[in-house]
Every structure is written in structure tokens, then in C-alpha cells.
């Protein structure tokens, strides 16, 4: 059987809220090392990869590898019934056709159980090689969210260019253009406001803002977001979930026609 208890149930709620508009359904894969998901959006332009480590859960048991297909909208409906301070336990029997979500309030006075029917989902899994990126930028997730939201009011695409001192986001549209530059700032006083750039080669790539705005829905999961860029490769937008795992998004670039 599979059983996993997350004291901070809100994490699971935030993860599902962050991905439910991007992907319709997905297989959640559980094995000894943890709970993971990989799914592409319907247009095969972006990909979501979630990884929650077994040791990130207060209790984790997975007797055999299971893949549980769920419709994200339905999972979201159920998780919205959990309180923000509730602990969430997921349970499923081997070869079962449902997954049970148990919500426990902090004082343990309220206990609720919801069963979600599992589905068979054909999923295509992409092998993503571990790569060294030309540039890695770590910036406050709220700052990234603001930039992609602001730029989307001007244009449809953003050019992200990274040099050793700064990362620049630029767009053009019918009404004009916009540029936002964030300088490297390794603030020791306020680590939550730091922007760090690690670069082997300057890089500039263009991406659709619509997807980046969708990824930014993961902002509540982490104080920082990590952007990884290499020439002619998809961007990786990564949210580290402290002590538990990470939620990564991959987005193919816009290319010259």
C-alpha cells in the first residue's frame, strides 16, 4: 500500500493550485524514494516536474511502485476542503481504484476523509538530461511574479538576458515596450531579497509570457525562484520546497522563423 502524511498539508494545496491550470491530468508516481509527477501541457510547449522526497513526509510508506492518474481539477476540488493548517495523509491500496485524502486539524478535533477516483492516463514521459546551464539566476519569487505580470500587460513574449551582473527582462507590444533589470545583490541582511547570478556565458532567450505567468502561480511555495538558461535550450523555472522537494517547470523557447 501507499501511505504518506504531510504535516504541512498546505504545501500540497499550493502545489496543485500552481499546476492545475497548466495540465489537465497527470500520473502521480510513488516509489520508495518519494512522490513525483511529470506532465506536459496539452500543446507540448511546457512541462511540469514535481518531486517530493520520502524524507520530506512525516510518515511515508510505499510497498510497491504505483502510478495514480488524477484529474487536477478534481484533486484541487478535494484539497480545497483541507484547512490551511491541516495535516494531509494520502492513502491508497495496491491496485486500488481510489486514493483517500485524510485531513486532520491541528488540534485533531476535526478529521475528514475524501476519496478520489483514480483514472487511467496515457502519459508521455520525456527524459531530461542533467545539464550544466550557461546561466543560473536566483531571485525573489515575488519579484519574478511581478515582472512577468507587468510585462504581460505590454507584450506576449519576454527576452531574458543574463550577464554576470544583472538579469534583464524585455518585451515589445503594440502600445510600446518595457524593460526590467535586476542587479546581482547578495544581501546578507535580507536574504529573502537577494538576487544571485551564476554564469559561465552570457545568454539571451525569448519565451512566451503566458506560460511564465502560469509558472509564477507557484510563488507561494518558495521565497526564491531559480531560472536556468542555456543557449537554444528550454528554460527551467524551479521552486524549491524547503525540506521537501521541488517543483520545476520547463518551457521551450520562441525561435526565429
Amino acid at each position: 500500500m501507499f501511505e504518506a502524511r504531510l504535516q504541512q498539508g498546505a504545501l500540497l494545496k499550493k502545489v496543485v493550485e500552481a499546476i492545475k491550470d497548466l495540465i489537465e491530468d497527470a500520473n502521480f508516481d510513488c516509489n520508495n524514494s518519494g512522490f513525483s509527477l511529470q506532465a506536459m501541457d496539452s500543446s507540448h510547449v511546457s512541462l511540469v516536474a514535481l518531486s517530493l522526497r520520502a524524507d520530506g513526509f512525516e510518515h511515508y510508506r510505499c510497498d510497491r511502485n504505483v502510478s495514480m492518474g488524477m484529474k487536477l481539477a478534481n484533486l484541487s476540488k478535494i484539497l480545497k476542503c483541507a484547512g490551511n493548517d491541516d495535516a494531509i495523509t494520502m492513502k491508497s491500496e495496491d491496485n486500488g481504484d481510489t486514493i483517500t485524502f485524510m485531513f486532520e486539524s491541528q488540534n485533531q478535533e476535526r478529521l475528514s476523509e475524501f476519496d478520489l477516483k483514480l483514472m487511467d492516463i496515457d502519459s508521455e514521459h520525456l527524459g531530461i538530461p542533467e545539464a550544466e546551464y550557461d546561466a543560473t539566476v536566483k531571485l525573489p519569487s515575488s519579484e519574478f511574479q511581478r515582472i512577468v505580470k507587468d510585462l504581460a500587460s505590454i507584450g506576449d513574449t519576454v527576452e531574458i538576458s543574463v550577464t554576470k551582473d544583472a538579469v534583464k527582462f524585455g518585451t515589445n507590444g503594440d502600445i510600446g515596450s518595457a524593460n526590467v533589470m535586476c542587479r546581482q545583490n547578495k544581501s546578507v541582511d535580507k536574504p529573502e531579497e537577494s538576487t544571485e547570478i551564476d554564469i559561465t556565458e552570457p545568454v539571451a532567450l525569448t519565451f512566451a509570457l503566458r506560460y511564465l505567468n502560469s509558472f509564477a502561480k507557484a510563488t507561494p511555495l518558495s521565497s526564491h525562484v531559480v531560472l536556468k538558461l542555456s543557449k537554444d535550450l528550454p528554460i527551467v523555472v524551479e521552486y524549491h520546497i524547503e525540506n521537501v522537494g521541488r517543483l520545476s517547470f520547463f518551457l521551450a523557447p520562441k525561435v526565429e522563423e
Partner: peptide
């Protein structure tokens, strides 16, 4: 700037 590439152009099916 133009065409939107798909992910399969970069990554192989696993």
C-alpha cells in the same frame, strides 16, 4: 520572434 518550439524538439521520449 515567432515560432514556438515544442519540448520534443529538445528532449527524447523516456
Amino acid at each position: 520572434y515567432g515560432a514556438q518550439a515544442s519540448l520534443e524538439a529538445y528532449y527524447q521520449q523516456a
